[in-house]
Amino acid sequence: MKKEEINHLIEEAKFYILNNRFEEAEKYLKKILKDNPENPDALFYMGLLNEMLNRFTEAREYYEKVLSVSPGYHSAEEHLARLQGK
């Protein structure tokens, strides 16, 4: 998958997240992850949409994966800290 195509899919996913349409956003992200299972942005937004759907265990797993493929990914660190105790 080309970088442009990935960026395009990420933007689509973000659009749906901004409109509280998490299930739709998930479809675009899964398309990316199918070919690029270690794409940090796709993993991060998977974490975010799971968090927003109150699925905290799944969210945590995605954020941890982000940090394993891209150490120091700031937003993932932040959200992981926020999920403490949830």
């Binding site: 509280n20 349409r21 998490f22 299930e23 927003m52 759907l53 109150n54």
Partner: peptide, 8 residues
């Protein structure tokens, strides 16, 4: 009021 995905 409409209920949205992710609402508690």
């Amino acid at each position: 009021e409409k209920i949205l995905q992710g609402d508690i």
